[in-house]
Design a protein around this nucleic acid. Structure first.
Lengths: 217, 217
DNA sequence: CGTCAAACTGAATGACCATTCAGATGCCGT
DNA sequence: ACGGCATCTGAATGGTCATTCAGTTTGACG
């Protein structure tokens, strides 16, 4: 049988493949609904192997969170590296959050993580670290903008906290497919708030054009 | 034995007592961690009775959501009835959301509900209905304020959507006990945003004094 | 080739839990 | 007091998993 060809697609060997599958299953079925057999099936291996590599389901889950963090950080750095100037960078963050890339705007996973963080220590740490990083990035952009004269804010820390929170709140609607909330509305509402909060004024750069929209599987 | 005295505390009979216990257990252990035995123990009954009344664990969980909705609505109506004038009412909503009453600001439960809403139809409906109601209340207050001349907004619907989302976002930090987020910071940050968004100006009523702070069990 | 360890498999094993059930117990109308 | 119904109990029952394990395959290296 030629089922083997399947795994060539993902580099990094079986172990990493299992972790990726784990994340996918969590995204679809939630932490609570994730079985060892789901992971194994998705990864095209046996249940035994999952346990062989990670010792327990709990370990597999929490190890997959680490991979998630890596991807998040990578995506964030890469994407922000491309944008130039605070306004453009800020806009880029809005796009990322709206689901542009595979990791940052993966809000269904985020909701799962928040809920799990209340009862699981590893999840708690993962989400706190992720969140801190994201807010730090936002704060950095804001401070840059203030320095460059693009933004006017009295308290950048408060502003970034609020803008980050607004994203999370809007994201809930996005993740839960609330009628009336789309990626477009998301960026739209958020950007308007950002303009207000940061007193962005330059009209021609007020709202950068949307880049190519790549949808995720 | 005089264990019976215990249940006099809660009116409404065993059935309702079980529902209340269910909510408590969900709040503490999450949907995923809630066992029939937990509910029975908490309610001071047998597992059999829980199933006798609700047929299945799933039914017990989703029936308890209905009770939750009732309490939410009641609390909302009662509290908003007390406040007079849009600004006061708005402030009252902030207080409610910060955890003032037992139901509305019960964010740990909210996080659970959001996560469950992605995989369970009853939860989906409950949270949508709850959310709609809350946002409608907010919109009403805003429109009242605009009419009364207390607020100035171009698009009340957008404003209420954004202010509601901001609450949710801030609430996540509150529920997850993020360092630096307290009830006080919550209301503070939110009110500042509201002032900005609604152009609240009357300085002497800019920020009503905090009412008695009642903590929940 | 042959050896050895790591990677891997699939069939037990056993724990945990929702659900079922056979039978108490209380209660209400008569 | 008594039949009958709703309420209630605690001990089975059975299904669904995570985990274990005895053994097979693979691949690196002599």
């Amino acid at each position: 049988m030629a089922i083997v060809a399947e795994e060539d697609k993902a580099p990094g060997g079986r172990r990493e493949r299992i972790l990726r599958s784990t994340i996918e299953v969590i995204r679809e079925r939630g932490f609570a609904g994730t079985r060892v057999s789901d992971i194994a099936e998705r990864a095209g291996t046996s249940q035994g192997l999952v346990l062989y590599h990670f010792g327990s389901l709990a370990q597999a889950l929490s190890t997959s969170l680490t991979l998630l963090e890596d991807e998040f950080y990578t995506e964030l750095d890469e994407e922000l590296g491309q944008a130039d100037g605070p306004i453009d960078r800020l806009w880029h963050m809005a796009e990322l959050a709206s689901g542009y890339g595979p990791a940052v705007g993966d809000w269904r996973l985020w909701l799962e993580l928040w809920a799990r963080a209340m009862h699981d220590e590893d999840a708690r740490q993962a989400r706190e670290s992720l969140d801190r990083r994201w807010r730090a990035a936002l704060l950095t952009v804001i401070v840059e903008g203030v320095t460059a004269g693009d933004f006017v804010v009295s308290d950048p820390a408060r502003a970034s906290l609020r803008l980050a929170a607004l994203m999370d709140g809007l994201a809930i609607q996005l993740a839960l497919e609330d009628p009336g909330m789309t990626r477009a509305t998301f960026t739209d509402l958020w950007w308007e708030a950002a303009v207000l909060e940061l007193q962005i004024s330059d009209p021609k750069r007020d709202k950068p054009p949307r880049k190519r929209a790549k949808t995720r599987a």
